[in-house]
Design a binder for these strands. Structure first.
Lengths: 141, 141
DNA sequence: GTAAATGCAAATTGTTTGCTTACTG
DNA sequence: CAGTAAGCAAACAATTTGCATTTAC
């Protein structure tokens, strides 16, 4: 049994992580690519994808796959709740007052699956989409 | 303001819905396409996609989205909980004993978003992936 | 020095769309 | 018989991969 070789902290990986940590916007890979390009003009989109994968495997960031067409990434690896705009796919962090008590996992079961975790997910509209919707309604749909 | 024209119940749409209703496996569009082809050899994958879209808009089925991977479809449109295999993406229905009480939505808030709904989602491993994992562990990873 | 990671481009995968023809209501 | 929907193929979008070269350790 061989030891797992260590991952290298390349300049690219470091900058990708730094830039993602600065954001609270849960960017997609290509959004982050555009940002990282300001500091690394020759970086490739493939490198961004590869690094986001490695960083999320290592638990340094979160990969959000819940819905929408593109994956989004969160520089804050601490478990927390997310809301997704059902219109455009944008993701936000959800705050809560007091402690959140989820129903105990023992009460749930599923034939053919081993349940490992559960999460509460929120859906709604982001301010932009909310605004667009109201503008359209004002005209009479 | 015009009335919405009714959707036609074509042979294809009917069979796609019937076959999806028979399944509890939450198939992907191409899995369902293969099944439907047994009854409609000349059906196209595009037709399956278009119909799954229409049927989910009408609330006849559920569209289960997961970013970056394949959409899955559920012939049971009643709200219920799902588990997703973190390895292969397969989806199962989660049963529960007693009533499920989720934390009240008033305790959650998110700057820049209007929260409309919340849902509990489960993650784990399907029997196949669990088995493969155990086989690999037995050899010493 | 060596394996891991990069940049680049091409390949894959899942899904959508344009267009002509067929068929439902 | 009007217009929705089908079939087919080509287009698209997001992500992944192969390979020669560079770089971290």
């Amino acid at each position: 049994m061989e030891a797992k070789r260590p991952k290298r902290m390349t300049k690219q990986r470091k900058i990708i992580l730094e830039e993602l940590r600065k954001l609270t916007s849960h960017p997609t890979a290509d959004e982050l690519y555009e940002i990282v390009r300001a500091r690394l003009p020759r970086v490739s989109l493939g490198t961004v994808y590869r690094n986001l994968e490695v960083l999320s495997e290592q638990g340094d960031i979160l990969k959000l796959e819940s819905a929408g067409s593109q994956k989004r990434f969160d520089g804050n690896p601490e478990p927390h709740y997310h809301i997704r705009c059902v219109q455009c796919g944008r993701v936000g962090d959800v705050e809560h007052d007091g402690e959140v008590v989820l129903p105990s996992m023992e009460h749930f079961h599923c034939e053919g699956f081993t349940i490992h975790s559960q999460s509460l997910e929120f859906y709604g509209l982001c301010a932009d989409c909310q605004e667009k919707l109201e503008a359209r309604e004002a005209v009479g749909l």
